[in-house]
Amino acid sequence: MIQLLVFSDLDGTLLDHDTYDYTPALPAIADIKARGGLLILASSKTAAEMLPLHQALGLEDTPMIVENGAACLSPAYIGSKDADYRAIREVLRSLGAPFRGFGDMSVSEVSAETGLSMVDAARAKTRQFSEPGVWQGDAHQSAGFLAALARQGITARRGGRFLTLSFGATKADQMQQLCRSYAPSYSVALGDAPNDIEMIATADRGVVVRNDHSPDLPGLANYPHILRTTLAGPTGWNDAMLQILDELNFTQKGAAAHG
């Protein structure tokens, strides 16, 4: 039985906002593994983007929550089905709104928008379930755009950099499904952006990782189980997880399964 599930956002959380470095978090990741826990990456990134990091961290067959929660995939079953993505792009074409998605950008433009290498930017364009992009209109236009998307069953969620469109499943939905499947004694969720709020609030212990480039997360002030880091990115991630893991030496036996 898996005792601990740790769900982590990537950009600005486990990965440094500017450099995408994760090495400051390695001590806590090693401790999670030593305790028999699973680290589950949960990102708006595509499976193609996440797989190299997943492999570099030695996460083996642990599932990944991809494209902002639009799907949960085992590394062994990453495929090329993209019907959801093509449907979203068709709706965008019909609306003609001032939204510039990754499908409207070249690889070099995605690289410029994200700071990713050309190789990683090409992976970011290999989408199956969702479309991130930049809203270029005003607030009034945005309300109409979101309403038109909703009539087509498409939801929009704000991440640290982009507005991401999908057919509704969230990181929190996928987290809860995995908690039901694994029935852990304890769950932890870490994130830095508005699209992480539900995941952070739903876990047994939530962590808001400091990111000065991301908007402050509202609505979490009254949750006593949520920790906010003073340090940013993977350094804050590492400190928070080591603190929580230390606390679990005393609380894990009595923790109730969550989900």
Rank of each mutant, 00 (worst) to 15 (best):
M50I: 01
T19C: 10
T46S: 14
E131I: 06
N211L: 12
L59N: 07
C179Y: 00
Q141N: 02
D31R: 02
A124H: 05
N249E: 11
R158V: 11
A48I: 04
A203G: 08
S111R: 14
R228C: 15
G144C: 06
R123C: 05
E67A: 05
R158D: 03
A47S: 14
A34E: 13
E131S: 04
Y77D: 15
N238C: 14
C72D: 05
F99P: 14
A112S: 12
A156G: 15
A240C: 06
L38M: 11
M50E: 14
T202H: 02
S8N: 08
G160P: 15
L39M: 07
A139F: 08
T19W: 12
I197L: 13
V134S: 00
F99W: 13
D16I: 07
G79E: 08
H225T: 12
S130N: 06
H140L: 08
S108D: 13
Q174G: 03
M1T: 08
R158T: 13
N222C: 11
V66I: 14
V91M: 10
D61P: 10
S80C: 07
D138H: 04
E247Q: 14
L10M: 15
S142W: 06
G96A: 11
L163E: 09
P75S: 14
D212V: 06
I88P: 01
R93Q: 11
A240T: 04
L10W: 11
D18H: 12
L4V: 04
A255F: 05
L51N: 10
L245Y: 10
Q3L: 12
A28F: 00
G115Q: 03
N211H: 10
P215R: 01
A76Y: 01
K171H: 09
A34R: 10
I197V: 13
L4S: 07
S106Y: 07
